[in-house]
Design a binder for these strands. Sequence first.
DNA 1: GCCTATACCTAGATTGCCTAGGTATGGGAC
DNA 2: GTCCCATACCTAGGCAATCTAGGTATAGGC
Lengths: 107, 107
Amino acid sequence: MGRSAVNGQLDLLLLASLGAGEAHGYALIARIHERSGSRLELQEGSVYPALHKLEASGSVASRWADDGGGRRRVYALTTAGQTELARRAEEWNGFAAAVRGVLGAAS
Amino acid sequence: MGRSAVNGQLDLLLLASLGAGEAHGYALIARIHERSGSRLELQEGSVYPALHKLEASGSVASRWADDGGGRRRVYALTTAGQTELARRAEEWNGFAAAVRGVLGAAS
DNA sequence: GCCTATACCTAGATTGCCTAGGTATGGGAC
DNA sequence: GTCCCATACCTAGGCAATCTAGGTATAGGC
């Protein structure tokens, strides 16, 4: 098992991070690392395919930006993506509550 | 994706449920279903292999019980299993906090 | 002109769990 | 008294998520 182990929440994490403003892949990795309190260290090999999948499904849109530096693909949340984010966040809250319920009963 | 989607927390759920007292496989499924507020419906095909794995790693011990009815394999948490439960619970709390951190920043 | 950092990409392997079967026993219907 | 269903256990194989381990390209420091 890898060091971060996102346990099925990769899409949620990416959508939520994009909810804070458009960004390119590398920046998203940094953003998630930061906001998770350094607990999540996503790998590029996980993030890029996930972003492509989210774009294919219409949750995010991308454009190429050449701000002087090298090529960058900047992703932004679409309207459908905002809906999807809300749906997944609720799903996560339900799952977390379910685990808390099972854990809480033991203590 | 199945209907319950335990997202890598199957072992934790089983250990936590056994923390509330020894039980056999079928009863564990019912216990988790109940304590999760009916949100988690584990399948036998997930639970039994997981219990065997936990027994092989020393976290649980089993004995056959024939209380009048058909054969039943009753599982109980070992001392090592209690340590493992604490470790995994802490791991879960860390992960949940990380996700909250990423989600919270968006709102 | 080379090395490093930034940035992006993909194929293939691994892992974890579910699907879909199967066995066995006991009790109620009839 | 036998058929069916519920309880209880088990396994092989498949599938989906994501990680590993490579690769490409550009810009800037030295």
